[in-house]
Simulated assay, not measured.
Amino acid sequence: MIKVVRGNPTPEELAAALAVVRARAAAAEAEPTPGAAPPEPNWSDPARIARRETHRAGPRAWARTYWPG
Rank of each mutant, 00 (worst) to 15 (best):
M1F: 14
M1V: 15
I2C: 08
K3F: 06
V4M: 11
V4T: 15
V5G: 04
V5R: 08
V5D: 07
R6I: 10
R6K: 13
G7H: 05
G7M: 06
G7V: 01
P9M: 08
P9L: 00
T10C: 04
P11L: 00
P11Q: 03
P11A: 03
E12K: 11
E12A: 14
E12Y: 05
E12L: 14
A15W: 01
A16Q: 13
A16N: 07
A16S: 15
A16M: 09
A17N: 14
L18D: 08
A19I: 00
V21L: 15
V21P: 00
A23D: 13
A23Q: 06
A23T: 12
A25I: 06
A25K: 07
A25Q: 14
A25C: 10
A26V: 08
A26C: 10
A27H: 08
A27W: 03
A28W: 02
A28N: 08
E29V: 10
E29M: 14
A30S: 10
A30K: 12
A30M: 09
A30C: 08
E31N: 00
E31L: 10
E31S: 01
P32D: 01
T33F: 14
P34W: 02
P34R: 03
G35L: 09
G35F: 03
A36Y: 03
A36G: 05
A37Q: 05
P38Q: 06
P39S: 04
E40F: 07
P41I: 00
P41G: 02
N42L: 12
N42Y: 09
W43D: 06
W43G: 00
D45C: 01
P46Y: 01
P46G: 00
P46M: 02
P46L: 01
P46A: 04
A47R: 07
R48P: 00
R48N: 05
R48S: 11
I49H: 08
I49T: 13
I49D: 09
A50G: 07
A50T: 07
A50K: 12
A50D: 11
A50Q: 12
A50C: 14
R51I: 02
R51S: 10
R51E: 10
R52F: 15
R52K: 08
R52A: 14
E53W: 07
E53I: 14
T54Q: 11
H55W: 12
H55V: 07
R56Q: 10
R56D: 12
A57Q: 05
A57N: 09
G58D: 02
G58R: 04
P59G: 05
R60T: 11
R60W: 15
R60G: 11
R60L: 13
R60N: 09
R60F: 14
W62K: 08
A63L: 15
A63Q: 15
R64D: 06
R64F: 06
R64H: 06
T65Y: 03
T65V: 04
Y66E: 13
Y66H: 14
W67C: 04
W67G: 02
P68N: 01
G69T: 10
